[in-house]
Amino acid sequence: MNAILTHFYFVIISVTIGSIIAVILAIALSRFKKAAKYLMPILGIFQTIPGIVFIGVLFIYIGMRPETIIIALSVYAILPVLKNAYTGIVTVDPALIEAGRGIGMNPWILLWRVELPMALNSIITGIRMSTIYTVSWAVLAAMIGQGGLGEFIYIGINSNMKQFIVMGSIPAALMAIGLGFLIDKVQVKLTPRGLRRN
């Protein structure tokens, strides 16, 4: 039970941090679309660094602490949200931007009342993807002794006892499905009727 909670906290905290950073980055990049064209692929490279390597490097600097895991997972959580949020913001119909500017919205108001609400659906889709990935990456926490469902999996692998592996992976799978479902609900709730496809 404890392991499930620890795992859950890692996921929630990392996805929250990652998403906030991602949305801020997406807003910033959407103001500089030319730079974004080059920056996005570079950020993509981060994603390709294997989790073990990344946690290993952080471990050297930060040590055997939960922060190591949180930082690593947050970084991985950023990209899916960033990609979706950026696309969501830059694909807002230019006519809306023009109308908004024309009637006196300044860039901040335009962002808050038009661009972000229009991109919200896409942002939540990104958060959903991140959450589901993070549930599985959080297994790596056990690698540096920070608990979570990964612990059972490692024990299982090391001792070759299948039931331990199952004890770790089934709750993780359920967690991924449950959180995905929850986020879908939130998404429907937050989408105004005017943006729903009937």
């Binding site: 119909d93 006519a95 809306l96 023009e98 109308a99 908004g100 500017r101 024309g102 009637i103 006196g104 009342r113 038009v114 609400p117 229009m118 105004p192 005017g194 943006l195």
Partner: peptide, 16 residues
């Protein structure tokens, strides 16, 4: 701009 009304062909109502 808030003292000049502006209407465009694409209408541009905010869908949200």
């Amino acid at each position: 701009r808030t003292h000049i009304g502006y209407v465009i062909q694409q209408i541009g109502l905010f869908p949200n």
